[in-house]
Write a protein that binds this DNA or RNA. Structure first.
Length: 573
DNA sequence: GCCGTTTTCGGCCCGACTGTTTTCAGTCG
């Protein structure tokens, strides 16, 4: 929530939600939703724009422009304040529950006076919902299951949210006099897909000015506990942040300790113990005489334990310590290795940027190639037709330049039986095809496996898009025999996507690792629906790192010639 | 509330799925 656009978009979304609960004009609700999305992904800072510049934003007209101006100058919105007064606080949180829309949220409030998630869970337990009109025991039981999953995810934020928050705080702490280093540790540094709380580490001789600056940070709402080396704060967005101030000479040891994971740390300490050492957050010591072997840097500590340096995303005790001992850690793919992006959208389907804008953004990232893969017709909410797609292909041809290869493609929909949009002849006309599951997520494991294998084996399909279909904190992964799918992908020269969208990160790291072990290749893609979304590949690359993925396993690190041969299926493992 | 080779009003994303119904309402993507 550091960008003004994110804050404005959040207010516009809240307007939409409150209007929908209040039973307002659904088209007006949608107008606010669309405007929120457009603002969120707009490349310029909206609080620096005047009325005319705001009108340039798609889906923002004169009314919403005026509201953004009011927000920018006063920090609040009259109409939103009025709506908040009309709709009970807490009722909004019910809309976040999958399966509960405005109508049912309103119904539950009106008839059962439920205004919060705990009250909703209680109503489910008391079997009150099944008596409401349109409800039965099945829908009530289903809601109970959804609520259970929802509770498990609660209190954790997405990786991207935590990164932005941590970087903002570190920016303020790094400029405090006496600070030698400032970084984040914990699950955030390991690039876990969701983050519970944020751990910050600062190297400084005197902790007092650092703690003072921390308490004064714009994003810090209150400091709950403060000791001599540690402060615990809550941010304005309700996130817990632990700050530890460490003497510079033991910073490396502290970084190892607080980066974890717990299992990785235990394993390291066991190795230290066997060698007659003791490892703690203060350093690696010889037990016999208390002499310090290493403490200032992580590299020194791993080296003193006879290990090569273990990158944080690998520190889960899933074999990385053994590999480090044998000098067999993999070279990991990095975001700078990516030469292009093979899954992006434009205004032809549900993207917010035009083809020309996406191409310009790819060029400014110095990509060598870009795949344009708008949705195909079976995703009914879009209005894509074969004619529009062919028009787009001509537009792509016209934009071709030697510095940036454009690949014309589509994101197809895998039907329950594994079939795809369009016939084989039409499909063979594309340069790159992503095939994804967008519907019927609940199938038996066997049927789902057959469905995915049929799509993966289609001669024109190049990439299986967001394979598990999960939405973090919202929808679980589909049930499937992944090893069978990965084997089929390896055989047929189809890549598995590591989708970089913050609420997907799909494949997850552990499945990406399994895919690579089965000889399949991967594609790290942004799934960008706006120019700024292209940056999300940093999250995808981090997720791939957690899966031990090497650069050579990722098709969009390859030069264009090799990539084109792969896309034409002229590639054999 | 937005938007316009259907232009300043009257459209606006539409088909599938689920669970409840007996013809449909609500939700989702």
């Amino acid at each position: 929530m550091t960008r003004s656009n994110d804050e404005v978009a959040a207010r516009l979304s809240e307007m939409a939600e409150l209007l929908s609960i209040g039973g307002g004009d659904p088209y007006r609700v949608r107008a606010y939703e669309k405007a929120a999305r457009a603002v969120e992904s707009y490349p310029l800072e909206v609080d620096e724009l005047d009325a005319r510049a705001l009108d340039e934003i798609p889906a923002v007209g004169s009314h919403i422009a005026a509201k953004i101006l009011q927000l920018a100058s006063t920090g609040h919105l009259d109409e939103l304040d009025e709506l908040r007064a009309q709709v009970p606080a807490g009722l909004r949180s019910l809309l976040g529950v999958p399966g509960l829309g405005p109508k049912r949220a309103r119904q539950i409030y009106d008839e059962l006076h439920v205004t919060s998630l705990p009250e909703l869970a209680e109503a489910v337990r008391a079997e009150q919902l099944r008596h409401l009109k349109g409800w039965g025991d099945k829908s009530e039981a289903h809601l109970g299951e959804v609520l259970r999953q929802y509770r498990e995810a609660a209190g954790r934020m997405q990786l991207a949210t935590a990164l932005a928050l941590a970087e903002e705080l570190l920016g303020e702490l790094a400029s405090v006099p006496g600070v030698e280093r400032a970084t984040y540790a914990g699950s955030l540094r390991r690039r876990c897909e969701t983050i519970g709380d944020i751990d910050l580490l600062v190297a400084a001789v005197d902790p007092v000015p650092v703690m003072d600056a921390f308490a004064a940070c714009r994003l810090v709402a209150e400091v709950g506990a403060r000791g001599s080396t540690k402060s615990v704060a809550t941010t304005t967005t309700g996130v817990q942040v632990d700050l530890r101030v460490i003497p510079p000479e033991v910073f490396g040891a502290a970084l190892v300790y607080f980066t974890g994971s717990k299992a990785h740390g235990i394993h390291l300490r066991r190795i230290a113990q066997r060698r007659g050492f003791k490892l703690s957050e203060y350093g690696l010591e010889r037990v016999a005489d208390g002499s310090v072997l290493a403490s200032a840097t992580e590299e020194q500590i791993y080296a003193a334990l006879g290990l090569s340096y273990v990158p944080p995303p690998l520190r889960e005790d899933t074999g990385e310590i053994e590999a480090a001992a044998n000098g067999e850690l993999p070279e990991l793919v990095e975001v700078v290795d990516l030469r292009g992006d093979l899954h992006t959208h434009t205004t032809l389907s549900d993207g917010l940027a035009t083809l020309e804008e996406m191409v310009a953004a790819a060029r400014s990232r110095r990509y060598r190639y870009l795949g344009i893969t708008d949705h195909a017709p079976l995703l009914a909410m879009q209005r894509v037709t074969a004619e529009k797609v062919l028009d787009q292909r001509r537009a792509v041809e016209a934009l071709r330049r030697p510095d940036l290869e454009l690949l014309h493609g589509s994101e197809l929909n895998i039907q329950p039986d594994g079939s795809l949009d369009w016939d084989d002849d039409f499909l063979s006309g594309f340069d790159v095809l992503v095939a994804s599951v967008h519907s019927a997520f609940q199938m038996s494991r066997d049927d789902m496996t057959k469905r995915l294998i049929r799509a993966v084996e289609h001669p024109s399909v190049n990439i299986l898009g967001h394979p598990t279909g999960r939405s973090l904190g919202h929808r679980p992964a589909i049930e499937c025999d992944w090893e069978a799918v990965f084997d089929a992908a390896a055989r047929s020269g189809t890549a598995l996507e590591v989708n970089s969208f913050p609420d997907r990160l799909d494949l997850p790291g552990e499945l990406a690792r399994l895919a690579q072990q089965h000889g399949a290749v991967l594609a790290i893609s942004s799934d960008a629906h706006a120019t700024r979304h292209l940056d999300h590949v940093a999250l995808g690359a981090a997720t791939a790192q957690r899966g031990w993925v090497r650069p050579d396993s990722v098709i969009n690190t390859w030069p264009i010639g090799r990539l084109r041969r792969f896309l034409r299926k002229e590639w054999h493992p």
